[in-house]
Design a protein around this nucleic acid. Structure first.
Length: 439
RNA sequence: GCCGCGUUCGUCUAGUGGCCUAGGACAUCGGGCUUUCAUCCCGGAAAUCACGGGUUCGACUCCCGUACGCGGUACCA
């Protein structure tokens, strides 16, 4: 197999049908095809399988192209659009009728499957030989009565003409192999190599779909997932990198990926691990890159408009505070919005505190803040409130926690002093006053 | 029903006959660091390798069967 792979030129394709938004499961198929192509200096093309006119969804092609681009899975050349190739399929359907292996009935062209015999091929995944008894196969449609080809004809014609090798697709096609083998043979063409990728399934082990709350790529993007993390997580669903090195860039994947090491068992999509990995990517990204990504993310969230707050400078200031605290870009908003907006105080948050006379202590705090030398310095700030805690018979943490809720309305925030620095001394003092009034 | 494929911790997986009293990662639990939450560090629990037969001195690894799961069985892809 290795020899054959080496000798043949490599050309892979991703062939979705534009019946909806690009699904997360498709990412893995596209990624593997992309990796095989790039690894072998081959090409990777996009083919749009739009032969089912009834299920066409407007904008689906644009969605697929946009998402592939976002992911960094760049394809070569222009997409091949099957609906524009109608004549070609018709020509071969006619040829097949001429050869006597196909016939017309009910306005469609059917392939006549031999009564007996066997077909088999060896799948690249796991190097498994799979055989089918033709006695179990029925005649199938090549050309529908509307003149468009079925998947089966279109696949054979296109992948032969495009010289696809190997064909990388989902495992749901494995049972259609007899149809494809038969058609290739009837046309007198060589069978390409095939790699049927195991299905990605939901927690109930059935094919991943909307039923599982499975999302489209765009939704992952809106959720604040990074393309690198999605790619990295998906590549692990069915393939293990050498030496336990799980975190890999696209470039590194190209380097070490090998289809022959791909697995043949279906994998459950586990968003928890994806989230962890996304957090890893956020933590290890450069602050300046993160800033750009957050800016872009917020802009998209606001419908393409740059929001007034946070500004680029504000984001820059806050990044070191939140970098280790967010798993997804979307976490940025709830974690930081108290910095740009007045908090809405909630008794429940104050009640979590272990201090009896909150109002009294807060007044003490306010008094200190008003006389503290500006600009406030961390050491001084800490010293003063540790002293205050002691004097009040409280733990230092309890006092800091009270200040936290007073300035943010929340019990969980980025580091206190740094947050106050972003807020500014006036605003921080003002909020303590407001908290006192609230209590 | 028929055809095909599959079956190692909850999940992704390592493992290609002795290195496996089964390793790693996520999740989980406990501890450390710590003014919250995270990050980080240390440690624990977690798979009778689906089951039953073979083959072999020896099987998670090879063979057969059973069970279960999934996919296909469309003029959908």
């Amino acid at each position: 197999m290795r020899d054959i792979m080496d000798r043949m030129k490599i050309k892979t394709r991703f062939a979705p049908s534009p019946t909806g938004t690009m699904h997360i499961g498709g990412v893995r198929t596209a990624l593997y095809a992309f990796l095989v192509a790039r690894k072998n200096n081959g090409s990777f093309v996009l083919r749009v399988e739009d032969t089912d006119r009834a299920r066409l969804v407007e904008g689906a092609i644009e969605d697929i192209v946009k998402n592939l681009k976002w992911l960094g899975l760049n394809f070569d050349g222009d997409p091949v659009i099957q609906s524009e190739r109608k004549k070609i399929y018709q020509k071969y359907a006619k040829e097949l009728i001429g050869k006597g292996v196909a016939y017309e009935a009910d306005g469609a062209v059917w392939f006549r499957v031999p009564e007996e015999g066997q077909v088999s091929f060896t799948d690249l995944i796991g190097n498994r030989k799979v055989s089918f008894d033709l006695a179990n196969q029925k005649d199938f449609v090549l050309l529908k009565s509307d003149g468009f080809p079925t998947y089966h004809l279109a696949h054979v014609v296109d992948d032969h003409l495009m010289e696809t090798n190997p064909v990388i697709r989902g495992d749901e096609w494995l049972s259609s192999m007899p149809k494809h083998i038969l058609t290739f043979q009837a046309l007198g063409w060589d069978l390409p190599q095939y790699a049927h990728l195991p299905l990605i399934v939901g927690t109930d082990r059935s094919k991943l779909s909307k039923r599982h709350g499975a999302k489209g790529v765009s939704e992952f993007r809106q959720d604040g997932f990074l393309p690198e993390a999605i790619l990295n997580y998906m590549v692990l669903l069915g393939w293990t990198p050498p030496e336990d090195k799980e975190i890999l860039s696209l470039e590194e994947m190209i380097d070490v990926f090998n289809l022959k090491d791909a697995h043949w068992t279906s994998a459950v999509f586990d968003i928890t691990k994806l989230e962890w990995m996304n957090g890893e990517y956020i933590r290890k990204s450069q602050n300046s890159n993160l800033k750009t990504q957050i800016l872009e993310y917020l802009k998209e969230l606001a419908g393409g408009v740059v929001p007034n707050h946070p500004t680029e400078e504000e984001i820059e200031k806050v990044i070191p505070l939140i970098k280790e605290r967010i798993k997804k870009l979307s976490n940025f908003v709830p974690l930081t919005d108290f910095l740009w907006e007045k908090p809405e105080y909630d008794q429940a948050q104050f009640q979590k505190l272990n201090i009896k006379d909150k109002k009294g202590v807060l007044n003490q705090i306010l008094k200190q803040l008003e006389v503290m030398e500006r600009p406030w310095r961390t050491e001084i700030f800490e010293k003063i409130f540790r002293g205050l805690a002691q004097q009040q018979g409280l733990k230092a943490g309890e006092v800091f926690q009270l200040i936290r809720v007073a300035i943010s309305g929340q019990v969980i925030t980025p580091p206190l002093f740094e947050s106050i620095q972003v807020l500014g001394e006036d605003e921080a003092t003002q909020r303590v006053k407001e908290a006192i009034n609230f209590l």
